[in-house]
Computed example of a mutant assay.
Amino acid sequence: MGRLGRLMALALCAASGTATATTVYKCQAGGQTIYQQAPCAKNQRQETIALPDSAPADGQVAPMLEAPARASADETAPPPTAAVPPPRLFGCIRATDGKPYTSENGQPAPYQAPFGVLGAVSQPLSEAYGRGAAVASAPELNRGNGMAAAVATRNYVWVQDQCRPLSPAEACQVLREDAEANQRQIRNAFKSERGPLDAKDAQLQAQLKGCG
């Protein structure tokens, strides 16, 4: 072993307690050279050698840096799919005959209806508009028909259906009933008739995803 090797070995082996040797003494006497951690004897020629303080204080070999931890399963997994909101439907009452229906629009547009169909007049429409008057249901069809058109126009009023929002449970029940009825129609329909029914079924199934 050369001098440098013996020097490094001495520096590592001479460590005691928690201290690390950073200075080595080169002692020469009687033609011999000794490397030691303590100062040389008085009758020996002494040289000091400074070593880099690279070893840990406890004499242990410094651990290797750990590789970065792999991403957890939560980090590598795709983001969760956004939950489908519950369907929003409205229960409406038709102004002309009081029949209930469901709609996605809670503010239906006003429309014109004959005054007689609203229950305000007890006699038949023909009598309300004038005996013998042939009045069509739409005012524009009676333009130019003389007195009958004037009576029909005066007796048409603006009405609007009344709606209220359905609870999620009510909306889901309505959608399930509609889906069952539509699927019965699909089973009984000819292939050429199934296009609109299949499209409606796809729409209903998409809405039902929000029902859990």
Rank of each mutant, 00 (worst) to 15 (best):
P165M: 03
Q32E: 13
Y25T: 06
P56F: 07
A169C: 05
E170R: 01
L197H: 04
S192A: 13
A95R: 01
S192N: 11
C13Y: 09
A152Q: 08
K200F: 08
A77S: 12
L125N: 12
L125C: 14
Q185P: 05
L12V: 14
A73R: 08
R70N: 10
A128R: 04
A9Q: 15
A138G: 13
G210M: 12
F115S: 09
P139G: 02
E47D: 13
P114R: 07
R176F: 05
A38Q: 15
A82E: 13
L175W: 04
A19M: 09
L89C: 00
P87Q: 00
Q183S: 14
R154Q: 10
C27L: 04
P79T: 12
D198N: 14
S167D: 04
E140N: 12
Q107N: 12
V159C: 01
F115A: 12
Q160T: 00
G144K: 15
C211S: 07
M1N: 11
A202N: 08
E66K: 13
V135P: 03
Q28M: 10
G195W: 02
E193V: 05
T102V: 15
L166D: 01
P196E: 06
R94E: 02
P85W: 05
L141C: 11
S126F: 11
C27M: 05
P114K: 07
G212N: 14
A152T: 02
A202M: 04
N182L: 14
M8K: 14
Q123F: 09
A29M: 08
Q37S: 12
P68K: 12
M8R: 13
Q112Y: 08
L12N: 13
G212A: 11
P85Q: 07
A179Q: 15
D161S: 01
V159N: 00
A181R: 15
R164G: 00
K42M: 05
T22L: 03
T153N: 12
I93E: 02
Q36R: 15
N43M: 06
V61A: 10
V174T: 13
E180M: 12
A113C: 01
A169G: 07
L4V: 12
A128D: 03
N188R: 10
G119C: 02
A128L: 07
G91Y: 00
S54R: 05
M1K: 14
A138L: 15
R131V: 07
P165K: 01
A148W: 03
P196V: 01
V117H: 03
Q160I: 00
P87I: 03
P78L: 12
A120S: 06
D97S: 04
A69F: 02
R70A: 15
D74G: 07
P39M: 04
L197D: 08
C27N: 06
Q107F: 03
Y156E: 11
A206T: 14
S122A: 15
W158N: 08
Q203K: 13
Q60F: 08
P86I: 10
T20G: 04
Y129K: 01
V117D: 09
T20H: 06
P110L: 01
D198E: 15
L12R: 11
S54P: 00
V174N: 08
N182R: 10
G59S: 03
R94Y: 04
A206S: 14
L204Q: 07
